[in-house]
C-alpha cells in the first residue's frame, strides 16, 4: 500500500428505483478514489452487504423505500456498530432544517462526482 494512493472509499448504493440506482452507481464509478462495492434495492439487502466482506464505508441510502424504509435501515446499520457513514438521499429537498439536526437528508439530484468527493473530504475532516 502506497501512502500517496490511499485505498478507494468503498460505496454501497441503496435505492428501490432502478433508474435512480443506476445513475447513482454511474456517479460513484466515475468518481476517482471511490469504488462501488454494491447496489441493492432494499433495506434488508443493504444490511446484509454492510456486514459482508464488501464492508462499505459509505452508504448512499434512499429515504423512501417500500418495507424497511431508509430511516429504519439507517437506524439498523447504526446498531451494527460498523465503521460506516450513511447518507440519506431523497427525491426532494427538505430545506435547511434537515442539515442542522441529527437527521440529514440530501437531495438526490445534487449527487455528482464533485459533490461526493467534497462530502467525503468534509466527513473525514470532521473526524480528525
Amino acid at each position: 500500500m502506497h501512502a500517496t494512493t490511499p485505498d478507494p472509499v468503498r460505496v454501497l448504493v441503496v435505492d428501490d428505483h432502478e433508474v435512480a440506482r443506476e445513475a447513482l452507481c454511474d456517479v460513484v464509478a466515475a468518481t476517482p478514489g471511490f469504488d462501488l462495492v454494491g447496489a441493492v434495492a432494499s433495506g434488508p439487502e443493504a444490511l446484509e452487504l454492510v456486514v459482508s466482506v464488501a464492508a462499505p464505508q459509505l452508504v448512499l441510502l434512499d429515504v423512501q423505500m417500500p418495507g424497511m424504509d431508509g430511516l429504519e435501515t439507517a437506524r439498523r446499520i447504526d446498531r451494527l456498530g460498523r465503521d460506516v457513514t450513511v447518507i440519506l438521499l431523497s427525491a426532494q429537498s427538505f430545506g435547511p432544517a434537515f442539515q442542522r439536526g441529527s437527521l440529514s437528508v440530501l437531495f438526490k439530484g445534487d449527487v455528482t462526482p464533485g459533490w461526493l468527493t467534497g462530502l467525503w473530504a468534509r466527513h473525514c475532516g470532521s473526524l480528525i
Partner: peptide, 9 residues
C-alpha cells in the same frame, strides 16, 4: 432525477 444525475456526470 436519474437524468439530472447523469447529466451532471
Amino acid at each position: 432525477l436519474a437524468l439530472t444525475i447523469r447529466f451532471g456526470l
